[in-house]
Simulated scan of single mutants.
Amino acid sequence: MPRDEYQRQLQRLREDVLEMSDRVCERLERALAALETQDDNLATAVITGDHAINDRYLELEQACIELVALQQPVATDLRVVAASFKIITDLERIADLAVNLAEYARRAERRRYADVDIGYIGERVVEMVEAAMAAYAADDAASARDVAAEDDKIDRRCESASEFVVRDLLETELEAEIGLTPDALSDEVSRMLLTIRDLERVGDHAVNIAARTLYMVENDDELIY
């Protein structure tokens, strides 16, 4: 294969990875909107649409395999392919977490924890994914490191939110005016804790994307874990 065509294939791969990230972020934002509005139809659309993300992942996985098998890239080009392969894996897992969030939205019966700002945490982790992908698109190592630094803030906010939910559970007396049976309260607590956990995991996947970008650009594995 002529060198020009090979470079076009590498560039097309990167463009396709960015297109996949746009679709995943859109689904994540729709899942967060479903949580905020308790919109069952929106939640269902996120859940049923997940197969399209899975199909796209498999297509890009095959593209990565073919580039390695047929072109045997070395050095920088090999890092591009390897990073792209790892990034689409993280994107697919973020899409799975969006499905989880949509499922929580469908099961929620009331909004007990209005003081837990899920919307704010959700916005921040979406921004982290977008920033990580922008770093990938621009070969921007500094921005990749910034994503990892932002994750520390998200971890602290998620920890505080989880502690608030647990403390509320311990302090709650199941009196008649509360209107919750023990099982109903347990379901609400579990749903909220799982929501916080999955948003934190989205942030972790954003860091993974940043780590692979840093490795791709500078051959630096400091963020890989």
Rank of each mutant, 00 (worst) to 15 (best):
A149S: 07
E130I: 14
F164I: 14
V207E: 02
V129M: 00
P73Y: 03
F85L: 09
T89A: 08
L58M: 05
V129T: 00
L170I: 12
C25W: 04
V24C: 03
Q72W: 10
A75T: 07
L32P: 15
T37E: 10
R79L: 11
G49P: 06
L91F: 02
R79A: 10
E26R: 12
L60E: 05
R197I: 13
D16W: 00
E218N: 12
H51W: 09
L101V: 13
D115P: 12
N100L: 10
M128D: 00
L170K: 05
P73G: 00
I121E: 05
R201W: 00
D198L: 03
Y225H: 15
S190G: 09
R197E: 01
M133L: 02
R201N: 03
E36Y: 04
L91T: 01
M1E: 11
Q72H: 14
L91W: 03
A102V: 13
C25F: 00
V166S: 02
Q72N: 15
V189T: 09
V202D: 01
A149V: 06
R111L: 15
D152H: 04
E200D: 10
E175G: 10
D16H: 02
H51E: 09
E218S: 12
C64A: 00
V126T: 00
T89L: 01
A52G: 03
E175A: 11
A63P: 11
L28K: 04
A75D: 10
R106E: 04
D220F: 12
D183P: 07
R212E: 14
Y120T: 11
E5R: 15
Y113S: 06
E5C: 08
L28T: 06
D204A: 03
Q62H: 10
E109F: 12
E218I: 13
Q11M: 07
A31M: 13
S186N: 12
T76N: 11
I47R: 06
M192I: 07
Q38W: 04
P73S: 03
A63S: 13
L169Q: 14
V46C: 02
G49H: 01
R124H: 00
R112Q: 15
T195H: 05
E92W: 04
I118N: 01
S160H: 07
V17P: 08
